[in-house]
Amino acid sequence: MDARLRRAITWSKGHDRSVMYVAEVDGARWTIRLGEFPDEPLYMLAVDGADALRFDDWPPAWTRPE
């Protein structure tokens, strides 16, 4: 599993419809968008605007608002 998925991160709700969640990690802005599931992985992680990782299942180490 990618290291970014293993670290504990607390996410907040995104402020616009295209961004589901946001977090500040080591000074960088991390955002989560929805992928075209099931044609694409469910989640797309971007770091400071650059696509970084795609994955399907929410990592247990990450917490997000209800």
Binding site: M1, D2, D51, A52, L53
Partner: peptide, 16 residues
């Protein structure tokens, strides 16, 4: 495998 799109971060996820 879900690779990151081209032209983006040089960080590559470890092969899954």
């Amino acid at each position: 495998v879900g690779p990151a799109p081209t032209g983006c971060s040089r960080e590559q996820a470890a092969p899954v």
